[in-house]
Structures are given as C-alpha cells and as structure tokens.
Nucleic acid binder design. Structure first.
Length: 145
DNA sequence: ATTCTGACA
DNA sequence: TGTCAGGA
C-alpha cells in the first residue's frame, strides 16, 4: 500500500526538502551523510533521507554542521536512547546558553547606543541654544551701535 | 535530461 | 552555498 521508494536520487531529496543538490553534496563533504554510490551517482536510502531530515532540523536549531554530524553520528551508532537524549539535551543547553548570552550582549550594546544617542541630542540642542543666543547678542550689539 | 567533480570576477 | 565549466 505504502509504496515508499527504497532509494532516492539527489534531486528527489533536494525537491522534498526544498534545498539544492549542491547543499546535499556539501553535507556529504561535511560527513553528515554518506549515500552509497552506483558508479559515480549517489543512491540515497531511506536511512540517508532520515539523516538528512535530522541534519536540516539541527541546522534550524542552530547547530553547526560539525555538531550535527556528531549528534547524528551516535544517533545510529549508540543504540542507547538515553545517551542520545542526554547528548541532545547538552547540545540544546549550550545553544540556549549562547542565545541568552547574545541577548545580554545585545541589551548592553543597546543601552550604550541609547546613551550615546542621548548625548548627541543634548549636544545638538546645546548648540542650537548657543546659536540662538549669539544671534540675540549680535542683534543687541547692532542695536547699540 | 541528470548528475558529478572542481573551482572561485 | 551559489554557479559555471566540461565530462559521463
């Protein structure tokens, strides 16, 4: 009934996941997938397809291709589900920590920008005021002369 | 028509 | 990751 293909071409997967064949070949270079070869052509199995899906998910989660490779690597090696989950949890924790740090950095810089912006505005209004008084002084002087 | 490798104005 | 080349 479910006649799911036993293998796919590089273009099949590219289409399915909305990426280009170039990306798939690139991921292969990075060791994320290793489709078998039929001569030079790549033959992707359902397992390769699953790994590609996981890789794309990891990318969305912000993991580097190296991290994804490591995670996926033990995903089918270590059959210990708990170990896999623990690793994933560690990775997610680090990702989260990095994001929190970035948010703090951004907030800090934002405050500095706001402070500088304020200084500029004050400096500007101070000059406007001086210019106005200068004009007043000169007009007064002219009147005197 | 499809895919492959290598390279980078 | 894109893209172009030149071959299978």
């Amino acid at each position: 009934m479910d006649k799911q293909p036993a293998s796919f071409s590089i273009s099949d997967l590219a289409r399915e996941f909305g990426i280009t064949p170039r990306t798939i070949r690139f991921y292969e270079d990075q060791g994320l997938i290793s489709p078998r070869r039929e001569g030079r052509k790549r033959i992707f199995t359902r397992r390769d397809r699953t790994r590609l899906k996981l890789a794309l998910r990891g990318k969305r989660l912000g993991f580097s291709l190296a991290e994804i490779g490591y995670l996926i690597g033990m995903y089918d090696t270590a059959r210990d589900k708990n170990a896999q989950l623990t690793e994933l949890l560690n990775g997610l924790g680090q990702r989260k920590a990095a994001l929190v740090q970035q948010r703090e950095d951004i907030e800090a810089v934002l405050q500095e920008v706001n402070a500088f912006e304020l200084q500029c505005q004050e400096l500007l209004s101070a000059r406007e005021a001086r210019k106005a008084s200068d004009a007043a002084d000169s007009s007064t002087a002219n009147d005197a002369v």
